[in-house]
Design a protein around this nucleic acid. Structure first.
Lengths: 197, 197
DNA sequence: CGCCGAGTTGAACTGAATCAAGAAACGTGG
DNA sequence: CCACGTTTCTTGATTCAGTTCAACTCGGCG
């Protein structure tokens, strides 16, 4: 197997970007990972389950959402190179309020929570990686909160377009609108104004 | 000085609740803290500044807010026993988008970012404390995001009343409404319905 | 006292939701 | 590979939650 096609290469690079790991530690960690395939429509977590894994996406896409009064609200999307987990549940050990579902067939490393705890307890580097991931997640949530607090529907859409046009291009109106806190009809109207780019 | 009136007691307890520190490490950390007083109306950070401190409130209250189009939007409030910092700026080292202002005269420990880095690099325990704080901040942001995404103004108010009535009682209509993403007039009307409790 | 910011109330307005219906895209099985 | 059913997207008409604008009250503080 050539080095380039090693499926571990991608997650190793992602981790080293946060905090380089000594080779032995990386190997010990890698031994705990399992490579899995999830078809479109599969669930990584469902509401009510306690999250016991963290995933790393080699390919594909996933969506975090929750249901209130029968309606879906999307929290976030993940793509190749992202870590994926019902973070709230993983941290608090409470049942998850969110579903994680596969939007595009995904290849992902699955790492059990118990392995995470094991490395947190033994490795300063792991602890730092955990901190950096948590900080990154915080930043994403704060950005979105500020957007929801202070912007109109149209402004939220145009801000997302400016920040991440690839995201907008890749997702359906339905999913995008539920992420922005807008009804699909309204998003459709907003897009019309801009020559739907 | 009796043990109870030692102003370090409160922050020590808060830290030990997250992760007990060996005594020597605690003392080294405590040596980096400075006790300060901030009058009502003072700013801990202003928009545009890079955050270089983390604070711990012994008493008083602070408010995080940002300004968009001349209007204030409140992100969160902190009270005695809370850590306070422009976390986004502290993490990213970018200029802060938020102001932190003192709502009620505050006594706070001020800890420089450089000390934080120093301990992060040397102590596994510090790294864990940092992780746990980041995780806690994430949880708060996610909760608020979900509330803004899926609830009406009235529902957001009643949910906050249910979760944290003390908060609602302590704050002005003006600040509370800017936290909930509602105009003060609308919050006033909402409260009237419930016999303003 | 008298001002001034905060809170309340009313009336009119509006951004976005809802309801409804048709068009386009999708995927599944024959 | 096409036909059919299902879901998604768009568009229009209507409604409504919440904003905006404006006036008045209240309580604290100089």
């Amino acid at each position: 197997m050539s080095k380039d096609s090693d499926p571990r290469q991608q997650i190793k690079a992602a981790i080293n970007r946060l905090q380089p790991l000594p080779e032995a530690e990386w190997e010990a960690f890698a031994a705990q990972m399992t490579l899995k395939r999830y078809p479109k429509g599969a669930f990584l977590v469902k509401e009510g389950q306690v999250e016991n894994h963290i995933y790393f996406l080699n390919s594909g896409a996933t969506r975090h959402y929750f249901i209130r009064d029968g309606k879906e609200f999307t929290v976030d999307f993940q793509f190749a190179g992202d870590f994926v987990t019902a973070y709230y549940s993983l941290i608090t050990r409470e049942p998850s309020a969110v579903y994680i579902t596969v939007l595009e067939e995904a290849e992902a490393w699955s790492i059990p929570f118990s392995a995470l705890q094991y490395f947190y307890d033994r490795s300063k580097y792991s602890e730092r990686i955990g901190r950096l991931i948590a900080e990154g997640e915080y930043v994403k949530r704060l950005r979105k909160e500020m957007s929801l607090l202070s912007l109109t529907a149209e402004e939220r859409y145009t801000a997302l377009m400016a920040r991440n046009p690839a995201l907008v291009a890749r997702l359906s109106v339905k999913h995008l609108s539920s992420y922005l806190g807008i009804q699909p009809e309204s998003l459709s109207r907003i897009r019309r104004q801009f020559g739907k780019s």
